[in-house]
Design a protein around this nucleic acid. Structure first.
Lengths: 239, 239
DNA sequence: CGCCAGGTTGATTTCGCTCAAGCAATGTGG
DNA sequence: CCACATTGCTTGAGCGAAATCAACCTGGCG
């Protein structure tokens, strides 16, 4: 449940997610530099990459798997920030660039392989290739836009609405279309974590899931969910 | 109530807020360029600088006054994003850098003078002086941190807590220490806007203010507020 | 087998919203 | 200068959504 994951070998030069990351503009030589400066680890679900308050020693590149960022208040109430790392996405670059400590705790939600890139390497690459900085700038504009949007959602939308929204997001990432048009999806999160993502208690989430079940919109069974009426679900978001 | 404010003369070269803005690294020549590319206007309270959905034609520099950014949902529910422009701060640079339309509506809350800097000028200055870009990058890291923090607050804190938090923020900006140790402050916002800032209805805000009044923690009268027991208020935030 | 964590369900309470009315300050036109 | 509308703020009553507290499943796992 604790620890920094097991170190594993990995090669940036042949990495296929590199092209979908902020590093897609590196030259061969620069990629070699990146490769030498990184350390890769495998994390089991529940293991943490870094903790709230930790000094920020570099950035994390999610190779595969799923990583969530969690903030916990003094009562142990935890909120999952929507921004979990997709394959190819960078984690922890905001506090890095701001020169701050980490503001959240990053935790593997699924078995994941993640590369850590140390401060010196990141700074050298930023200095060498200005387009890297621009890539990060662009990622940040997007992240800021999403954060503000999310803030707005929480402030104005009901639990049910947010749940439906979340399910439709999962659909686009994990959904498999079945024979009858229904979508089957394997949930990457426990109920508790889903609840934390939309900022509600697990009990409330459970009730709302039941509600959707009873209305025939979805069918939940453990960690697999069937979305039976995508149209109706989408409609709910538009009012 | 409508319109884009009355144009007024203003000189960047002698502007004293410039030094506290992202433009503090400009050379004389660059500042002249900035001066030629800008247009300054005076806005009365309630006038809007730009609206949600407007294409983003440049960035806004708040010279003095107070500007809020508002998002409105389909029912007319509006939420004030905490990020109002302080003197010297830039508004609307996120969508500018992201190449998006404005996501919120900016509105003068107090009589304000604001300079608009057109796209071409901003781009030329970004290209000429890379430190400008770094300044914006740094501002954005801060903004993103605050947005995530705010998200967390809304998700976990009660109305009362958020109100107390807001009052303490105002204290640091507008507070004047009285003879008896109490802090007097002139509120920059109407009740409605204060309510919108913490994402609640005006009625609920009113009740909570009354509550704090009855407990002797504060004394409200119109737009002036006296914080009688700072210690107790601060304590509430820590639980 | 019994234990335990995660999940569900039920009963009750709390918080903030809605709807509605009243009130004070400001403005406006006769 | 006064009657009247308008606007912003407060108060009250009732309601509804989600939290809380508590019990009870269920499925691993020692």
């Amino acid at each position: 449940m604790e620890g920094s994951g097991a170190e594993i070998p990995m090669d940036c030069l042949s990495c296929h997610v590199l092209a979908h990351s902020e590093w897609d503009v590196l030259s061969k030589a620069e990629a070699r530099l990146l490769d030498r400066g990184k350390t890769c680890s495998a994390y089991a679900p529940g293991e943490t990459l870094f903790r709230e308050g930790d000094p920020c020693r570099g950035v994390y590149c999610v190779h595969d798997g799923l990583v969530g960022v969690r903030k916990t208040d003094q009562n142990g109430q935890s909120v999952l920030l929507a921004r979990f790392g997709y394959p190819g996405s960078m984690l922890g670059y905001r506090p890095f660039l701001a020169g701050e400590c980490h503001r959240g705790t990053a935790e593997a939600l699924a078995p994941s392989r993640v590369c850590f890139i140390g401060r010196d390497t990141v700074e050298e690459l930023l200095a060498r290739n200005p387009r890297v900085g621009l890539n990060f700038l662009h990622s940040m504009t997007k992240a800021l836009g999403e954060a503000e949007e999310g803030y707005f959602q929480v402030a104005t939308h009901s639990l049910r609405r947010q749940l439906v929204h979340l399910l439709l997001i999962f659909r686009s990432r994990f959904g498999v279309v079945g024979t009858d048009g229904a979508v089957r999806l394997q949930l990457p999160l426990s109920r508790q974590d889903m609840a934390a993502m939309i900022g509600v208690r697990p009990e409330s989430l459970s009730r709302t899931i039941r509600e959707l079940n009873d209305e025939g919109l979805v069918r939940f069974s453990g960690r697999t969910a069937h979305l039976l009426d995508i149209q109706a679900l989408s409609d709910e978001l538009d009012e």
